[in-house]
Protein backbone atom coordinates (compact mmCIF):
# COMPACT_ATOMS: atom_id res chain seq x y z
CA UNK A 1 0.00 0.00 0.00
CA UNK A 2 2.68 2.45 1.02
CA UNK A 3 4.68 1.53 -2.06
CA UNK A 4 1.72 2.44 -4.22
CA UNK A 5 1.23 5.74 -2.36
CA UNK A 6 4.87 6.56 -2.74
CA UNK A 7 4.67 5.90 -6.44
CA UNK A 8 1.63 8.15 -6.80
CA UNK A 9 3.25 10.86 -4.72
CA UNK A 10 6.34 10.77 -6.89
CA UNK A 11 4.19 11.34 -9.94
CA UNK A 12 2.52 14.20 -8.09
CA UNK A 13 -0.89 12.63 -8.32
CA UNK A 14 -1.57 12.77 -4.61
CA UNK A 15 -1.90 16.01 -2.66
CA UNK A 16 -0.93 15.82 0.96
CA UNK A 17 -2.04 18.36 3.48
CA UNK A 18 1.18 18.39 5.46
CA UNK A 19 3.39 19.19 2.47
CA UNK A 20 1.97 22.64 1.94
CA UNK A 21 4.41 25.38 1.32
CA UNK A 22 3.45 28.99 1.40
CA UNK A 23 2.75 30.57 -1.94
CA UNK A 24 4.61 33.73 -1.01
CA UNK A 25 6.91 35.16 1.63
CA UNK A 26 4.81 37.01 4.16
CA UNK A 27 5.70 40.27 5.88
CA UNK A 28 3.94 41.01 9.13
CA UNK A 29 1.13 43.53 8.78
CA UNK A 30 1.59 44.83 12.31
CA UNK A 31 -1.95 43.78 13.35
CA UNK A 32 -2.02 40.48 15.19
CA UNK A 33 -5.50 39.37 14.12
CA UNK A 34 -4.74 40.15 10.48
CA UNK A 35 -1.45 38.23 10.58
CA UNK A 36 -3.32 35.26 11.92
CA UNK A 37 -5.93 35.37 9.19
CA UNK A 38 -3.41 35.86 6.42
CA UNK A 39 -1.00 33.21 7.74
CA UNK A 40 1.83 35.61 8.46
CA UNK A 41 0.91 38.90 6.88
CA UNK A 42 0.89 40.62 3.53
CA UNK A 43 2.89 39.15 0.64
CA UNK A 44 6.35 40.65 0.23
CA UNK A 45 6.14 40.50 -3.58
CA UNK A 46 3.42 40.45 -6.18
CA UNK A 47 0.10 42.19 -6.49
CA UNK A 48 -2.12 43.09 -3.55
CA UNK A 49 -5.60 44.22 -4.51
CA UNK A 50 -7.42 46.35 -1.95
CA UNK A 51 -11.02 47.25 -2.62
CA UNK A 52 -11.87 50.12 -0.40
CA UNK A 53 -13.56 53.46 -0.08
CA UNK A 54 -11.35 56.48 0.48
CA UNK A 55 -10.44 57.71 3.91
CA UNK A 56 -11.66 54.76 5.96
CA UNK A 57 -8.24 53.64 7.18
CA UNK A 58 -6.83 51.79 4.18
CA UNK A 59 -3.41 53.45 4.35
CA UNK A 60 -3.20 53.11 8.13
CA UNK A 61 -3.68 49.38 7.67
CA UNK A 62 -0.70 49.27 5.34
CA UNK A 63 1.73 51.64 7.07
CA UNK A 64 3.53 49.06 9.29
CA UNK A 65 3.90 46.79 6.26
CA UNK A 66 5.22 49.59 4.05
CA UNK A 67 7.66 50.62 6.74
CA UNK A 68 9.09 47.10 6.93
CA UNK A 69 9.28 46.80 3.16
CA UNK A 70 11.23 50.07 3.03
CA UNK A 71 13.66 49.04 5.74
CA UNK A 72 15.86 47.16 3.23
CA UNK A 73 16.83 50.54 1.77
CA UNK A 74 14.65 50.22 -1.30
CA UNK A 75 12.13 52.78 -2.50
CA UNK A 76 8.48 53.27 -1.80
CA UNK A 77 6.61 54.74 -4.76
CA UNK A 78 3.21 56.42 -4.69
CA UNK A 79 1.60 56.69 -8.12
CA UNK A 80 -1.25 59.15 -8.65
CA UNK A 81 -2.22 59.56 -4.97
CA UNK A 82 -5.65 61.01 -4.15
CA UNK A 83 -4.37 64.38 -2.99
CA UNK A 84 -1.15 65.92 -1.69
CA UNK A 85 0.53 63.38 0.59
CA UNK A 86 1.31 64.82 3.99
CA UNK A 87 4.88 64.47 5.21
CA UNK A 88 4.01 64.72 8.91
CA UNK A 89 1.83 61.64 8.93
CA UNK A 90 4.18 59.47 6.87
CA UNK A 91 7.20 60.53 8.87
CA UNK A 92 5.43 59.84 12.15
CA UNK A 93 4.60 56.34 10.88
CA UNK A 94 8.31 55.66 10.34
CA UNK A 95 8.44 56.00 6.55
CA UNK A 96 11.84 57.28 5.39
CA UNK A 97 10.98 60.27 3.26
CA UNK A 98 14.23 60.24 1.30
CA UNK A 99 13.25 56.79 0.03
CA UNK A 100 9.83 57.93 -1.08
CA UNK A 101 9.01 58.87 -4.66
CA UNK A 102 5.71 60.40 -5.68
CA UNK A 103 4.68 60.14 -9.31
CA UNK A 104 1.76 62.09 -10.70
CA UNK A 105 1.26 60.97 -14.29
CA UNK A 106 -1.30 62.65 -16.51
CA UNK A 107 -2.99 59.57 -17.93
CA UNK A 108 -3.82 56.09 -16.71
CA UNK A 109 -1.60 54.62 -19.40
CA UNK A 110 1.39 56.56 -18.11
CA UNK A 111 0.57 55.47 -14.56
CA UNK A 112 0.66 51.81 -15.58
CA UNK A 113 3.90 52.33 -17.49
CA UNK A 114 5.47 54.00 -14.47
CA UNK A 115 4.26 51.19 -12.21
CA UNK A 116 5.77 48.57 -14.48
CA UNK A 117 9.11 50.39 -14.71
CA UNK A 118 9.27 50.76 -10.93
CA UNK A 119 8.39 47.14 -10.27
CA UNK A 120 10.88 45.83 -12.84
CA UNK A 121 13.75 48.00 -11.70
CA UNK A 122 14.52 46.00 -8.56
CA UNK A 123 15.15 49.16 -6.56
CA UNK A 124 11.58 49.61 -5.34
CA UNK A 125 10.17 47.59 -2.48
CA UNK A 126 6.54 48.63 -2.81
CA UNK A 127 4.48 50.60 -5.27
CA UNK A 128 1.06 52.02 -4.41
CA UNK A 129 -1.25 52.69 -7.32
CA UNK A 130 -4.51 54.54 -6.84
CA UNK A 131 -7.67 54.14 -8.88
CA UNK A 132 -6.40 53.06 -12.27
CA UNK A 133 -8.70 50.77 -14.26
CA UNK A 134 -6.86 47.54 -14.87
CA UNK A 135 -7.46 44.80 -17.42
CA UNK A 136 -6.63 41.16 -16.90
CA UNK A 137 -3.65 41.18 -19.27
CA UNK A 138 -2.27 44.35 -17.67
CA UNK A 139 -2.57 42.82 -14.21
CA UNK A 140 -0.71 39.74 -15.39
CA UNK A 141 2.02 41.91 -16.87
CA UNK A 142 2.38 43.86 -13.63
CA UNK A 143 2.49 40.63 -11.66
CA UNK A 144 5.39 39.39 -13.80
CA UNK A 145 7.19 42.71 -13.43
CA UNK A 146 6.71 42.56 -9.67
CA UNK A 147 8.15 39.06 -9.52
CA UNK A 148 11.11 40.13 -11.64
CA UNK A 149 11.96 43.06 -9.38
CA UNK A 150 10.96 41.36 -6.12
CA UNK A 151 8.55 44.18 -5.35
CA UNK A 152 4.93 44.43 -4.32
CA UNK A 153 2.25 46.47 -6.04
CA UNK A 154 -0.71 47.60 -3.99
CA UNK A 155 -3.76 48.48 -6.03
CA UNK A 156 -6.25 50.77 -4.31
CA UNK A 157 -9.58 50.37 -6.06
CA UNK A 158 -13.21 51.11 -5.38
CA UNK A 159 -15.27 48.06 -4.45
CA UNK A 160 -16.33 46.52 -7.73
CA UNK A 161 -17.71 43.39 -9.22
CA UNK A 162 -16.04 41.86 -12.20
CA UNK A 163 -13.41 39.37 -13.14
CA UNK A 164 -10.99 38.59 -10.41
CA UNK A 165 -7.47 39.63 -11.23
CA UNK A 166 -4.41 37.38 -10.96
CA UNK A 167 -3.21 38.74 -7.63
CA UNK A 168 -1.52 37.26 -4.60
CA UNK A 169 -4.03 38.73 -2.20
CA UNK A 170 -7.32 40.49 -2.65
CA UNK A 171 -9.04 42.09 0.33
CA UNK A 172 -12.09 44.27 0.77
CA UNK A 173 -12.33 46.95 3.44
CA UNK A 174 -15.42 48.44 5.01
CA UNK A 175 -15.57 51.28 7.50
CA UNK A 176 -15.97 50.51 11.19
CA UNK A 177 -15.93 52.66 14.29
CA UNK A 178 -13.00 50.82 15.87
CA UNK A 179 -10.91 50.23 12.76
CA UNK A 180 -11.77 48.55 9.50
CA UNK A 181 -13.84 45.53 8.65
CA UNK A 182 -11.71 43.33 6.46
CA UNK A 183 -12.74 40.44 4.30
CA UNK A 184 -10.25 38.31 2.42
CA UNK A 185 -11.64 37.70 -1.04
CA UNK A 186 -8.79 35.72 -2.51
CA UNK A 187 -5.50 34.53 -1.21
CA UNK A 188 -2.86 32.49 -3.01
CA UNK A 189 -2.31 29.29 -1.07
CA UNK A 190 -5.24 29.94 1.27
CA UNK A 191 -8.94 30.34 1.59
CA UNK A 192 -11.19 33.39 1.56
CA UNK A 193 -12.27 34.46 5.01
CA UNK A 194 -15.39 36.01 6.45
CA UNK A 195 -15.31 39.72 7.40
CA UNK A 196 -13.53 40.41 10.68
CA UNK A 197 -12.57 43.54 12.52
CA UNK A 198 -9.01 44.87 12.44
CA UNK A 199 -8.85 46.81 15.67
CA UNK A 200 -6.88 50.06 15.43
CA UNK A 201 -7.60 51.37 18.89
CA UNK A 202 -4.10 50.64 20.14
CA UNK A 203 -2.21 52.03 17.19
CA UNK A 204 -4.46 54.95 16.29
CA UNK A 205 -6.49 55.91 19.36
CA UNK A 206 -7.27 59.33 17.93
CA UNK A 207 -8.88 57.85 14.85
CA UNK A 208 -11.21 55.34 16.51
CA UNK A 209 -14.25 55.76 18.64
CA UNK A 210 -13.77 54.04 21.96
CA UNK A 211 -16.20 51.28 22.73
CA UNK A 212 -19.77 52.44 23.07
CA UNK A 213 -20.53 52.72 26.85
CA UNK A 214 -17.38 54.70 27.68
CA UNK A 215 -18.01 57.06 24.83
CA UNK A 216 -21.56 57.73 25.95
CA UNK A 217 -20.34 58.25 29.51
CA UNK A 218 -17.82 60.82 28.35
CA UNK A 219 -20.46 62.60 26.36
CA UNK A 220 -22.70 62.82 29.39
CA UNK A 221 -19.88 64.13 31.51
CA UNK A 222 -19.18 66.90 29.04
Amino acid sequence: MSALLEQLARRQLVWQGNSQHTAYRAVSSGYAELDQQLAGGFPATGLIDIQTGTGIGELRLLLPYLQQQQSSGRLLVLISPLAEPCADMLCAAGIVLSQLVIITPKTGKDALWAAEQCLQSGCCASVLLWQVPLKLAQARRLQLAAEQGAASLILMRRPQQGLSLPVNLSIKLQPHRQGVLLSVQKRKGGWPAAPFLVDMQNRWPGLCFSTEPQWQARRKAS
Binding site: R60, A83, E84, C86, M89, A92, L207
Partner: peptide, 12 residues
Protein backbone atom coordinates in the same frame (compact mmCIF):
# COMPACT_ATOMS: atom_id res chain seq x y z
CA UNK B 1 10.04 66.05 14.50
CA UNK B 2 6.75 65.06 12.92
CA UNK B 3 3.54 66.34 14.46
CA UNK B 4 1.18 63.67 15.66
CA UNK B 5 -2.21 63.05 14.11
CA UNK B 6 -2.01 64.63 10.73
CA UNK B 7 -4.05 63.36 7.79
CA UNK B 8 -2.47 61.25 5.07
CA UNK B 9 -3.69 63.52 2.30
CA UNK B 10 -4.25 67.24 2.22
CA UNK B 11 -6.76 68.66 -0.22
CA UNK B 12 -5.27 71.20 -2.60
Amino acid sequence: AALALRPAFLLA
